[in-house]
């Protein structure tokens, strides 16, 4: 059976071995890959990372782990990974290549597509055994089925698209892959990485529950209320563009057309009117609940359960009730 290459998305400090974790989207991709062939994981990062992640990848069916590791990979943006991956594809001739639909994942795929003159499909939410991919376009309003018509199926998979299911393989063998770069691959050099307080909340695009606040939250200080509900539900915190532009919450947590696209099991919208800008980033969520003081707010057209009311009364009461029940 032909191999299906899955590019591993990791959590944790890039550039330092230890503390690596596998992102959920990786496990989703391994689950998808099993339908298409024999999953083989590709790990980019610091030396030792592939060894560290091998057991977890094997748990989800990876039969082999390709390790491309070292400073050449971690100290530069995108290009070295694309060069190594394209070379691996030429050598292995996989049935398909799956990459996470993150900014970097898409960028790697883009470069590989040019190198191999191969089609690519991004933001894929389902992948059939024959390579037909399902994508959601235009803010979740259109469903598209597409195929790569030149080359092999090269797809980037959107997080939270499939349920990861374990299928233990024998401990996968780790094979080191040579990192042979061209001079153009090392032009973009990372000179500094600054870690910001991250806390224990799940990553926004991967979270099962997302609790977002909008203009109605009113201030940065009031976002504590949003965070409290998120923590009680084990979720991530998001914000509308109105809230991030007003400085209530940092920009990287923006959900919407110009921010992240999320598709959690539960989306809680607090003080968010539901402008198309915001809906673009969340309307494929499974269950949506909303609290807003304006009964005409468009968010209620999407919400499975909506409360028209003052969020400063409704939300603290909800928090209290959750505490009582858990």
């Amino acid at each position: 059976m032909a191999e299906v290459l899955v590019v591993v998305e990791t959590t944790g400090a890039v550039g330092a071995a230890g503390g690596y974790g596998v992102k959920k989207v990786t496990l989703e991709m391994l689950t998808l890959a099993r339908e298409l062939g024999e999953p083989a994981a590709v790990v980019f990062g610091a030396p030792g990372g592939a060894q560290e992640l091998g057991a977890k990848l094997g748990e989800y069916g990876a039969v082999k782990v390709y390790a491309a590791e070292g400073e050449q990979i971690t100290a530069h943006l995108v290009a070295p990974k694309a060069t190594v991956l394209a070379e691996l594809i030429r050598r292995v001739q996989p049935a398909a290549v799956l990459i996470g639909s993150t900014q970097e994942g898409k960028e790697i795929a883009g470069r590989v597509a040019v190198k191999l003159d191969n089609g690519l499909l991004t933001d894929v939410v389902a992948l059939a055994a024959d390579g037909t991919a399902t994508q959601v376009a235009f803010a979740g309003s259109t469903i598209v089925k597409s195929r790569v018509t030149r080359g092999l199926p090269l797809v980037t998979v959107r997080p939270n698209s499939v349920t990861p299911t374990p299928a233990p393989a024998a401990a996968p063998a780790v094979e080191a892959v040579a990192v042979a770069l061209g001079e153009n691959d090392t032009l973009a050099r990372v000179v500094e990485r600054v870690a910001e307080q991250k806390g224990t909340r799940p990553e926004l695009t991967e979270a099962n529950v997302v609790v977002s606040g909008g203009r109605g939250v009113g201030s940065a200080d009031n976002f504590k209320l949003v965070e409290e509900i998120a923590d009680l539900l084990g979720g991530a915190v998001g914000a509308s563009r109105a809230a991030t532009d007003s400085g209530f919450y940092p920009h990287q947590f923006q959900v919407g057309q110009t921010g992240k696209t999320v598709s959690p099991q539960l989306y809680v919208a607090l003080g968010i009117s539901g402008a198309i800008q915001h809906r673009a980033g969340m309307q494929t969520s499974k269950t949506i609940v909303a609290v807003n003081k304006d009964p005409e707010a468009p968010i209620f057209e999407l919400a499975d359960f909506g409360v028209v009311g003052d969020l400063f009364k409704v939300v603290p009461q909800a928090a209290e009730e959750i505490r009582k029940r858990t």
Binding site: Q283, I288, P295, F300, E301, L302, A303, D304, F305, G306, V307, V308, G309, D310, K313, V314
Partner: peptide, 9 residues
């Protein structure tokens, strides 16, 4: 999506 239940607090 069709809106579900909407209540007034």
């Amino acid at each position: 999506r069709s809106g579900g239940q909407k209540i007034t607090d």
